[in-house]
Design a protein around this nucleic acid. Sequence first.
RNA 1: GCGAGAGUGGCGGAACUGGCAGACGCGCUGGACUUAGGAUCCAGUGGGGAAACCUGUAGGGGUUCAACUCCCCUCUCUCGCACCA
Length: 847
Amino acid sequence: MKERFDFNEIEPKWQKYWAEEGAGNSSADPSKKKFYCLEMFPYPSGKIHMGHVRNYAIGDVIARYKRMQGFNVLHPMGWDAFGMPAENAAIKNNVHPSKWTYENVAFMKQQLDRLGLSYDWDREVTTCNPEYYRWNQWFFLKLLEKGLAYRKTSFVNWCPSCATVLANEQVVDNGCWRCDSVVVQKELEQWFFRITRYAEELLQGCDDLSGWPERVAVMQKNWIGKSEGAEVDFSIEGRPEKLKIFTTRPDTLFGVTFMCIAAAHPLAEILTSDKPALEKVKAQYGKEDDKVGHFTGHYAINPLDNGRAPIYIANFVLMEYGTGAIMSVPAHDQRDFEFAKKYGLPIKTVIQPAVNSQQSDESLTEAFEGEGVLVNSGSFNGMRSKDAKAAIADFVERQGLGKKTINYKLRDWGISRQRYWGTPIPIIYCDKCGAVPVPEKDLPVILPDAVQFSGTGGSPLLNIKEFVNVDCPKCGAPGRRETDTMDTFVDSSWYFVRYCSKRDEGPLNKNNIAYWMPVDQYIGGIEHAVLHLLYSRFFTRCLRDLGITTQSEPFRNLLTQGMVCKETWKCPEHGWLFPEEVSDGRCPQCGKAVDKGRVEKMSKSKKNVIDPDALVKRYGADTMRLFSLFAAPPERDLEWSDQGVEGAYRFLHKIWGLVFRCRQDILRGREIASQNGHSPLIAPLLRKTHRTIKKVTSDIEKDYHFNTAIAAMMELVNEMSSFKSEKDEEKAMFYMAVQNLILMLFPFAPHFAEELWSEIGETRGIYRHAWPEWDEEFAKEEEVELVVQVNGKLRAKLLVPAGLSDEEAKDKALNDAKIKEVTEGKNIKKVIIVKGSLVNIVVAGGV
RNA sequence: GCGAGAGUGGCGGAACUGGCAGACGCGCUGGACUUAGGAUCCAGUGGGGAAACCUGUAGGGGUUCAACUCCCCUCUCUCGCACCA
């Protein structure tokens, strides 16, 4: 055994060993309890970053821990390999997206292996492989059959920089989720997945996601955005058209004093002759600072009381929600109130907060949006607004004036992308037959290799005659192939199902899927709270309805890990600086004092990244894993600290040194321990070891708080460091402590643990060993510190035998010299005893 | 504006169901070993104080024998939603 721990030697050695043993592999086996542990697969952008390291370290600890707990663990990895960066690289560097992608995959795979991650590579998925994406196409055809995929022309989000369409979920603050460019609206014919058919189910399902962070479920609920109300038809004075509005407040129908329609509403063009005014309102569409409107000169008739309501075109009314038209009740809606004040429109109160609070309409300073009692509402007067909602909606429906409606914000998922590097949509257009699906037997529709990237936008597929020109499968006439490709979120919506079967088993093996699904623990960033996680929930339901799985929810437990952050440095003139550029707090270019910026998410642009490769070279994979698990609990942001890494490195060395120095004692202890009839000596180290096992186990089980689990192991090591083993029994005990420590350390620092495991005389790999158990008897303290308070203030600490009765504890406390002094001559009113830990003596008149 | 989460030493972070605030690590201080130390080991380390002791979990109030923990108010930060009718 070497005196110093040499990670360069031992880490590759054990990686090779695990690979040969197939230590990460798994097979479906209904006789065993399964555990599916999954980390979000990466986009192969070139090399891994610290966010990946953290994500995968967390997953690997869980996978290894669960294996030791006896679970049949599925822990796969793959590549989200279609997407824009490959295409951009192709344009920029004249390298084919396929070559670029596969090279990145090879490089990153090697990086992951160097971290000692226990994946089952037999199930590796690469989404740009035809054997994978043919199933995207197959699902597309199935969804088409079920009416869940359809084509329509509509205004869609267009990112000018990416030269492609984006789904609603992919627009963040009116910018592109990938490149931040301002998104514009463009009218295009596109393919959609009818996710809205599952809106209600997806919403309801949010309440069953007990293993998810609540905020993620809340974000999905908000995104689905259900609201219940009614659609009501208003007639237009002197015109044949009807004006259909949606409202969640039918109880305020009698309070309507005007109507508003969106500038893009079909009636807007018809009802106003003043086109410049209409354009003006259009230009202000969606601007939140000001409400702008234009009176059309027409009036709508309230179907309930035949009141006349002027129709306005207003910038704050959204065409994409509800019917694009609203009834305005300024007394009970703040937006309508503001609009009414600006344009001098009447305000009519129809709900009183309390029965006797009369207030004139003119004196209102804001809308009253709460609940109350109806007034000025005909036969509904006196009804509670809560009840009136249903009553008026019912009335409207019975009279044929409208109907009760549920509205969702969720829109169908637009999946067409005008890009090359994605799954071809299996459709052929024929002048006679229309959009004809490619027959299943012709799948996959292979993405052609030989393409030219102009970089000027537009899919290069358009220019490939052999691809585009194809006969109609139905009538045989010359047709034209769809050149749009699928959104890459389609790829990631079912990859976790593909993993259930090995590469040679066929992708949709129902037995495998039934055994492994759902994912027991999913780990990834919060940025997919709506995107990928919502699409996957939708897709899983589609698979369920296709009979492929019986599950509705793909991910039982979700852990959203925090970001990896680091401090930043910034020169007021030259911007972000690398930490090593900054010497004595000055900018290397201009010599000006630099600002120590905030701690921010690692990013190349802020120059605060740490390269995992450099770290592996310097400290090894185990140290890097250990630090990233120790520095913060997994769901919280992690602040990178170079000195903290040193600390983790030191910790491993400390253990190594301990085993190195005491090796003979340990081996002797092992012999003693293996002898029959040996019973362990009850001593502090034994107690500490059992308590550590208990603590580490429960910290992992409860929310995966690895930071405190590692801290507990550190405590144990500290205690072991000062332990002297002279007698055989002590050696046996020390051996027992070392053995358990190594076992517990294994999921965190697996190479290191394997090496020490063999150094203490084991011949079978530790990866097959069971997780240690603790004995509650041994974990008990024999002496405890009894805290004695007087009026809640700490006055003494007494070392007493464990299991003291309340009476004994009280006696001990009251007879303590210090306590006697403090309570001398005072009237003891009460003594509170917390079993085995604390006595609080309450005396009159303070201390 | 609405919703959620958070605020604890010089720093990252601990603290069960209300019961010793600051586990563990980093940093710092002192010491040992050493030609040397940015290695290693040992000790100390919330603040004030010589000490007894006092004080301390964003700020203010409350409940309680006892509050980081529960309740009310205020401030700050982060995230999400944001004219959704």
